[in-house]
Amino acid sequence: MNIFRLVGDMSHLLAIIILLMKMWKSRSVAGISGKSQILFAIVFTTRYLDLFTSFVSIYNTSMKVFFIGTSYVTVYFIYQHFKPTYDSNHDTFRVEFLIVPVGGLAFLVNHEFSLLEILWTFSIYLESVAILPQLFMVSKTGEAESITSHYLFALGSYRALYLLNWIYRYYFEGFFDLIAVVAGCVQTILYCDFFYLYITKVLKGKKISLPA
């Protein structure tokens, strides 16, 4: 565990907590893409099946359980508890265009042709694009609340920090995983436009609003 990995994990944890707090305090899921959140629930479920097969550490296990659990709570909030506030008209990204190609790719490009390994690979690929319905929603409505922007920034930072973690691990531990690194790069690149808006607008006290 190096500093980049730890701060990355904390950033990921913070993103999830920000999102849950936003929904709970405002009693609303406005501006949040239910489709992205369903994708994240699928990502965590397919990646952390190794909870049943291997034990790494208390830290590892509790984070995995937390990520899976909160992802289902989030989906429940959007589609049940706060359903009247869910903006489905603007959440129109076609997720099958992500799931089908990503599933095919995981089947073709993986480290080992076994069920758990293919599901893990699928999860890594899917995570890299899972935010697209959310980014699509922001661009469609042309705005994002500050709290949603903070969520997206924390969530995007997490994978960017993992990239630094992988550079560190490559040099000091000889560790290198091409699938994770390529997917991590794709994931981080998808956030670049948002990072720019966040730094130039949200940090100066303005909310993100795009020209129509």
Binding site: R5, D9, H12, D50, S54, V56, S57, N60, M63, K64, F67, H111, E112, W120, Y162, N165, D177, A180
Partner: peptide, 10 residues
């Protein structure tokens, strides 16, 4: 060993 690959990461 391959099995220990990314499994310690989240």
């Amino acid at each position: 060993k391959k099995d220990a690959r990314v499994k310690d990461e989240l």
